[in-house]
Write a protein that binds this DNA or RNA. Structure first.
Length: 578
DNA sequence: GCCGTTTTCGGCCCGACTGTTTTCAGTCG
């Protein structure tokens, strides 16, 4: 029986949905595939169990038809609808839809008229001038497609941390079950909490490496074994992700973890430092050069101590000042998930969210939060039903009701405002004054010149009732480049006006990035963390934001929502004028 | 294709922006 998990089934459903859309199928038919895929990804039970128990229809969005298809899929590796659509359209068309500027309709034209089935094919066709004269493809569109292809190439290589981390954790669990294994962990960019990762590095401590190598080759979703030797095996998963598993003796585990966690730059600097002390560092330990005696290696702390420093947290290991800080024992005490007392950015069914305020509060209670802010879209974002004054009154009333009755985290009345072309926001001052917290963000104008875009953000920060600028650059990882902003000017204005900047924790945003965060800290700008959750389960995305914050050297004192509720209120910008 | 139901079929959100097919389709969110 083929091995499937929720993401791999979801990926197949998404492919069918995309191909159906390209083929011109009914909108609601292809959307139902995407809805089912999305629900399956977030569903807390495994698809194989659900299929075996006949409970797939428990997943919202999966009805009788899709349940039967999924059962067939997990039993046979395919299902009739998948076969039918992939015989009509090549599956590679899906990648073309990923190119910014290309949607299903244009992809269909490219396929039918020019036989283009891939991004490479599209690029060749553009270079050969074959698109000229094609209906719907003017000079400007063709020009934009070339840019889109570049962006596609630049962004597609690496996987999002949120897509990889759960899989890596399952591999680690599997490795720990292998006979003779003393310890196992993921290392590399994943352990450093990079926002995207190119592969998964696993380090295993065992005296019986052969058993570990065998277990690696047998991992679920292994498509291809690239290499498999005595202590190292590399595989490629069905999702195209490379996994490298390395086995060392338990006494070498710390050195191997240090070595494979990197970064390369961090390790180079460390080895230079070791050499100056008459030492040598490799994945097996720290050795004295003159007599080759091993002086450390069982633990990372031992390795770093041998080199005269305390252990820097993995998130800092980029050779950007952490080694000197570690030598001087003045490493920051980085933010931890447990420091977060509430989530300051989420949407509800009042706009484009899937959960109610009450459901979000229930999830927040699970997470141990003291408060949350409901921050639905403001009126000018009409495409998602942004809230007008009447809708606001209704929402405030229901929040008052929830806060008065029932227990759970306190709900703050928030809003996500739109920064318009002049840097103004959706409501007048008297309305803004009635929120507990107001975020403002860019939702348009992605191609604007730097000075124009920057002016909008600066203007918004001058509003005394805009507390936070949310997802500052608007980037979407692997999909949309950040808007071109004068970040320095933004930081200076934020500090001057006491406007907080949000670290948006949604996995494909993670906006601010690590560099911006360090800039903010340096400038004395306060940070908020918000998940931008569109359904209650996504409140769990906070962990990815905390990882990013740590990469940005952020400490609890830099973050507003580590404060208790009254402390938070007192520190929001509006407290100065209200 | 799912869902809810006034149980057997109709509803499923929609507006702004872009480029171009100059009156609107396609993309985006």
């Amino acid at each position: 029986m083929p091995d499937f998990d929720n993401p791999s089934v979801a990926d197949i459903l998404d492919t069918v949905g995309d191909l159906l859309e390209i083929s011109g199928a009914d909108k609601f038919r292809f959307l139902s595939y995407h809805k089912a895929a999305h629900a399956l990804r977030a569903f807390p039970e495994d698809v194989m169990t659900l299929a075996a128990d006949g409970r797939l229809t428990d997943v919202p969005g999966i009805g009788k038809k899709l349940a039967a298809s999924i059962v067939t899929l997990v039993q046979s590796g395919t299902f009739p609808e998948f076969e039918a659509i992939t015989s009509e359209l090549p599956g590679t068309l899906v990648e073309l839809v990923e190119v910014p500027g290309l949607g299903p309709k244009k992809v269909k034209v490219l396929f039918e008229r020019l036989g283009i089935v891939s991004v490479d094919g599209l690029e060749s066709a553009i270079e050969a001038g074959k698109l000229a004269g094609l209906a719907g493809f003017g000079t400007k569109t063709i020009e934009n497609l070339s840019v889109g292809i570049d962006a596609f190439r630049r962004h597609r290589q690496r996987a999002l941390i949120a897509d990889v981390l759960p899989f890596a954790e399952r591999i680690v669990s599997a490795m720990r079950e292998v006979d003779g294994v003393a310890d196992a962990s993921y290392a590399g960019s994943l352990r450093r909490r990079c926002e995207t990762v190119g592969d998964i590095d696993i380090v295993v401590a065992s005296e019986r490496p052969a058993a570990v190598m065998e277990a690696t080759r047998q991992l679920p979703r292994t498509e291809r074994v690239l290499a498999s030797g005595e202590t190292k095996t590399s595989i490629v998963t069905t999702g195209g992700l490379q996994v490298d598993v390395r086995v060392v003796a338990p006494s070498q585990y710390g050195a191997a973890m240090q070595y494979f966690t990197g970064s390369a730059e961090h390790n180079v600097r460390l080895r230079e430092l070791a050499k100056s002390r008459g030492l040598r560092v490799n994945e097996y330990g720290v050795f004295r050069v003159h007599d080759d005696v091993r002086v450390a290696g069982a633990s990372e702390d031992e390795v770093y101590a041998a080199l005269g420093m305390v252990t820097p947290p993995p998130e800092l290991r980029e050779n950007t000042g952490e080694i000197q800080a570690a030598q001087e024992d003045r490493l920051p005490r980085l933010l931890k998930l447990g420091d977060i007392r509430g989530d300051l950015h989420m949407h509800t069914t009042a706009t484009d969210g899937k959960s109610t305020a009450e459901q979000n509060r229930a999830k927040a209670a699970e997470l141990g939060y003291e408060y949350i802010a409901i921050t639905d879209h403001a009126v000018n974002l009409r495409m998602v039903g942004g809230l007008d004054l009447d809708a606001l009154e209704r929402q405030w009333e229901s929040i008052d009701e929830l806060n008065a009755h029932g227990n759970g985290p306190h709900i703050l009345k928030g809003i996500e405002l739109n920064i318009d072309d002049d840097g103004e926001v959706d409501y007048s001052e008297d309305v803004l004054a009635r929120f507990d917290i107001a975020l403002a963000s860019l939702h348009s104008g992605w191609g604007q010149p730097r000075d124009v875009a920057t002016r909008r953000v600066l203007r918004a920060m001058e509003n005394p009732l805009v507390d936070v600028i949310s997802h500052l650059t608007g980037r979407v990882l692997r999909r949309r480049d950040p808007i071109d902003l004068d970040i320095e000017a933004v930081m200076a204005k934020a500090a001057e006006t006491a406007t907080a900047l949000e670290l948006n924790c949604y996995p494909d945003r993670l906006d601010l990035d690590d560099t911006h965060l360090r800039m903010a800290k340096h400038a004395g700008v306060v940070i908020t963390l918000g998940t931008d959750s569109h359904e209650a389960t996504q409140l769990g995305y906070m962990t990815y934001g905390v990882g990013q914050a740590r990469r940005g050297w952020i400490e609890p004192g830099d973050v507003l929502n580590t404060l208790p509720l009254e402390g938070l209120r007192a520190r929001l910008k509006r407290a100065r004028v209200l």
